[in-house]
Simulated assay, not measured.
Amino acid sequence: MGEVIIYYRPQVITYVNELVFSLYKNHYFGFMEDALSYKDKLLDFIENNISDFPYKTTPFTLVHFGSYYMFYNSTKRTTWYIFFEKKDDKYLVTYISNNHQPISGFLL
Rank of each mutant, 00 (worst) to 15 (best):
N17C: 11
E18R: 15
L23V: 10
L23W: 09
L23G: 09
Y24M: 12
Y24I: 01
Y24D: 00
K25E: 06
K25G: 03
Y28W: 07
F29M: 11
F29C: 05
G30A: 11
G30D: 09
G30P: 04
F31Y: 15
F31D: 15
M32C: 01
M32V: 13
M32S: 01
E33R: 06
E33N: 03
D34M: 10
D34A: 10
D34W: 09
D34C: 06
A35Y: 00
L36Q: 15
L36E: 15
L36P: 12
S37H: 10
S37T: 13
Y38T: 07
Y38H: 12
Y38C: 04
K39I: 02
K39D: 08
K39W: 03
D40E: 15
D40I: 15
K41V: 03
K41F: 01
L42Q: 01
D44P: 06
F45Q: 07
I46N: 02
I46E: 08
I46A: 02
E47M: 08
N48F: 07
N48P: 01
N49R: 05
N49G: 12
I50M: 08
I50D: 05
I50A: 12
S51V: 07
D52G: 13
D52E: 09
D52Y: 14
D52C: 07
D52R: 12
F53R: 14
P54L: 11
Y55I: 04
K56G: 02
T57A: 08
P59F: 03
P59W: 04
F60W: 05
T61L: 03
T61F: 04
T61I: 09
T61N: 05
L62C: 02
L62Q: 02
L62Y: 06
V63N: 08
H64M: 10
H64P: 05
F65D: 00
F65W: 06
G66R: 11
G66Y: 13
G66C: 13
S67P: 05
Y68D: 03
Y68F: 14
Y69T: 08
M70P: 07
F71A: 00
Y72M: 04
Y72W: 01
Y72A: 03
N73P: 02
N73D: 05
N73L: 01
N73V: 00
N73H: 03
S74E: 06
S74C: 00
S74Y: 02
T75E: 13
T75D: 09
T75A: 07
K76L: 15
R77I: 08
T79W: 00
W80N: 14
W80G: 09
W80H: 15
Y81I: 05
I82C: 09
F83L: 14
F84Q: 03
F84R: 07
E85D: 15
K87M: 09
K87Q: 13
D89M: 09
D89K: 07
D89Y: 12
D89F: 12
K90D: 06
Y91T: 11
Y91I: 07
L92Y: 03
L92A: 05
V93I: 15
V93T: 10
V93G: 07
T94A: 06
I96S: 01
I96R: 00
S97A: 10
N98W: 00
N99Y: 01
N99D: 05
H100Y: 11
Q101F: 13
Q101A: 15
Q101W: 09
Q101G: 11
P102N: 10
